[in-house]
Amino acid sequence: MQPQLIICEHCDSVYQRPALTPKQTAHCQRCGALLERGRHLTTDQLLALTVAAAILFMLANAFPIVEISMQGLSNEATLWASVEALAEGRITIIALVTGLSIIFAPALQIILLGWVLYHARGGRIAPGFRTCMRALEHLRPWSMLEVCLLGILIAIIKLAGMLEVHAGLGLWAMAMLTVLIILISGRDVRDLWNELQVPVR
């Protein structure tokens, strides 16, 4: 309705939309919250990073994260196996939360971003654009790869005292994936609403 206005989501203050150069940020005068960030990645760059994230996601899930060995016996764990380890007996519900935060939420973010950005690259509004964009907003807080990465490091240190621990191929993929997800899942993608001039009913 009024694309030249923006409202601070933390205190409801209304401002004229500032023109920002990349890396510039605008903060709310009243409450200090971030209003808007100059976009630092173009649609092309975002799409390229999303494709890279998709490949890394597959590697991170296909290969073991950590391998351990003790007295000739060895064992390894993938992300999925970690989720499964919680899925026994009375605590199954926590396996669902864990699965969402380290596998399903990042997977959905990559798929939805890929879909939306692929179409945006040709200047088109993807079918289901509204649903995809809203899903992305709601997924963001539940995607916790960075927490998982710290968790893996702690698990490695914890076990290193008792047995032999090796980082698996999955861990390297996972570390890079975490960085990419942080880059692509931010608010940059919100600019598509204005860039594609999504019609207002």
């Binding site: 351990i68 390894e76 764990a77 919680l86 698990a155 076990l159």
Partner: peptide
């Protein structure tokens, strides 16, 4: 969520 993830991974391994 850190502790939940540590327990999950250690238990899987």
């Amino acid at each position: 969520m850190l502790d939940v993830l540590v327990v999950a991974l250690v238990a899987a391994l």
